[in-house]
């Protein structure tokens, strides 16, 4: 979060070379320019370079969803996104949702006790926000009746919410309460 003026990070002093490039990411509204090892995933840029540790590393292979953030408005697994390939992108993490306070979905997670250990929680929240937008944009899911018309918002019942959030594992088993929280904000 913080100021919106352009920030040139310390790491940017490292020279671009065959294996490094200068990259600008707009993170939670702030442009951040860094010189990055091409191998660095967005998740590690957030956690290691920008000290935004809300996005979590659960598996590092796109198999758990704990690292979910929004890139150009869409939810993705930040562990599988090479940061160099995202130059110029807008990234929103759990730290950037509240606009100072708490986003209604964050409040709903709190109200519904939709977590225990909290490690999957930022990913669940970002994923749910992405999923809500996808449904609004008319994206179907595996459980959507194929007859549902295209191009219109898709209704989100509990079964739809469950299917759409299935890319976010929760080992504490908070699933039913997470669905409650998501229902709270789409009502």
């Amino acid at each position: 979060m913080g100021s919106r003026h352009h920030t040139r990070d310390d790491a940017a002093t490292a020279a671009a070379d065959r294996h490094h490039s200068q990259v600008t990411l707009h993170v939670n509204g702030t442009p951040r320019t860094l010189t990055l090892d091409h191998r660095r995933a967005l998740l590690d840029v957030l956690r290691e370079d920008l000290d935004l540790t809300g996005a979590k590393k659960g598996c590092d292979h796109g198999q758990c969803g704990a690292c979910t953030v929004l890139v150009d408005g869409r939810r993705v697994n930040s562990c599988l996104q090479l940061a160099v390939a995202l130059d110029g992108s807008e990234v929103v993490t759990v730290e950037g949702l509240g606009d100072g306070g708490m986003h209604p979905l964050q409040q709903a997670f709190l109200d519904r006790d939709a977590f225990q250990c909290g490690y999957c929680t930022p990913g669940q929240i970002c994923s749910a926000l992405g999923a809500i937008d996808e449904a609004r944009a008319g994206h179907p899911s595996h459980v959507t009746d194929p007859g549902t018309p295209s191009g219109r918002p898709m209704p989100l019942g509990r079964e739809e919410i469950r299917e759409r959030l299935s890319g976010n594992l929760c080992r504490c088993g908070a699933y039913p309460h997470i669905v409650d929280a998501v229902e709270d904000v789409i009502r």
């Binding site: 809300g54 730290e95 930022p122």
Partner: peptide
């Protein structure tokens, strides 16, 4: 009673073992 650390967890500010700079 609501979880005391709940706000930190839902806002991503709760720090876990790898997250101490």
């Amino acid at each position: 009673a609501e979880r005391r650390e709940g706000r930190q967890k839902v806002t991503g500010t709760a720090r876990y073992a790898a997250e101490h700079p």
